[in-house]
Structure formats: structure tokens, C-alpha cells
């Protein structure tokens, strides 16, 4: 039911998360933030089992921050992604697996922007665009049609708008609000569409 989207542009990554906290048939909250900042240039967005997602992403957040403090160097997005995968993969075959789907977006000063798709089984894939959950059925086809490499921010916002419009139009679940975040060389910021 939750919506997680991500898209890599020319020099930024844009991620979209819905802001509804849903339990059973009830919406508990309309302004839930489904992202955590892992490091100044790495953002993780998550969906899945309510407790697992926050517990796991905050565990990642603190450990990656600890790494930054200890070593006085930020973990690159690629390194962070592999760390996340390892943690998730080890948990998967223990008695307490995390039921969490993740998108990791980051900006590396040398390698530029990158987006990683990680599912609850700890499959890791680097993608130009990615989605989790039901919205993937609508949005991946939109991305396939309209995505180009090297999109600028306005073009990317346009495409995201198209995707959300499609969701409002066709998806049975009501997702009234979305939080849109951009990761680029200046760090992480929330933007309005």
C-alpha cells in the first residue's frame, strides 16, 4: 500500500515517499516521514512492517554516523548500500528478519548521484529509477516511457508529477500527501513539487 519512488537525474537523486501511516483499514497519521538521513549525502527511504522499518533504518543511521565520527570520513553511497545489504542479508537468515523494503539515494563527490533498490530479501540493485510496492506497477512503466539520463531537476519534477497523477488516477488506495526529497552535492533537502 505504501509508495516509494526514486529517480536519478543529472547531478541529483530525487525520492518520493507517501506520508500515510496505515494500519489495517485505518490511516493513523498523515505526516509520517518514511526517510532517514544516513549521512550528509545519503538518504534512505523505507516501506514495510511498521516497527521493522524504523528500527532497522535508525540502526543503519546510527551505525553509519558512528562510522563517520570514528573515521572522520563519510561512507560513500555505494559503501552504505553494501553495508545495508549485508545487515539485511544476515538478519534474513536469523530468527529476527526485517520486513523492510528500501531505496538508498546518495550523492558521491567523485561518482555523482546514485540510487539503490533493496528489497526485504536483501537483493541489491543499482538503478536509474526504482519503485517499491504497488506504485511500482504504475510508475515503472511511466519511467520506462519518459525517463532519460541527465534529466535536470525541473524535468525530473515533471516526471514525478506525472507518476503521482497516475497514482491518483488509477490506484485504489488514497495517498493524499507525498514527501519529495532531493539529494545533491549540497546535501539533502525537501522540496515542493
Amino acid at each position: 500500500m505504501e509508495c516509494l519512488l526514486g529517480l536519478v537525474g543529472k547531478d541529483f537523486v530525487i525520492t518520493v515517499t507517501d506520508t500515510s501511516a496505515i494500519r489495517s483499514i485505518t490511516v493513523l497519521k498523515h505526516n509520517e516521514d518514511k526517510t532517514r538521513v544516513l549521512s550528509p549525502h545519503t538518504l534512505i527511504s523505507f516501506s514495510g512492517e511498521a516497527g521493522d522499518t524504523i528500527n532497522f533504518s535508525e540502526y543503519l543511521q546510527k551505525n553509519i554516523q558512528l562510522y563517520g565520527i570514528r573515521n572522520n570520513i563519510e561512507l560513500t553511497p555505494a559503501a552504505a548500500a553494501h553495508f545495508v545489504r549485508r545487515e539485511l542479508a544476515e538478519a534474513l537468515r536469523s530468527r529476527n528478519a526485517y520486513q523492510a523494503n528500501l531505496l538508498l539515494s546518495g550523492y558521491d563527490k567523485k561518482k555523482g548521484p546514485s540510487l539503490y533498490w533493496i528489497d526485504h530479501l536483501a537483493a541489491l540493485v543499482q538503478r536509474p529509477f526504482a519503485a517499491h510496492g504497488y506504485c511500482g506497477y504504475y510508475c515503472t512503466s511511466m519511467f520506462d516511457r519518459y525517463y532519460r539520463p541527465n534529466m535536470d531537476l525541473e524535468e525530473a519534477k515533471d516526471l514525478i508529477r506525472k507518476c503521482l497523477q497516475e497514482l491518483h488516477h488509477r490506484f485504489i488506495i488514497n495517498l493524499p500527501r507525498f514527501s519529495v526529497k532531493v539529494v545533491d552535492k549540497d546535501g539533502i533537502r525537501e522540496i515542493e513539487l
Binding site: 542479508a89 530479501l121 541489491l124
Partner: peptide
């Protein structure tokens, strides 16, 4: 097979 195990 399962992607996660492929990577592991």
C-alpha cells in the same frame, strides 16, 4: 535463483 543469495 534468489537475487539476494546470488549476491551473497
Amino acid at each position: 535463483g534468489l537475487a539476494t543469495d546470488v549476491l551473497t
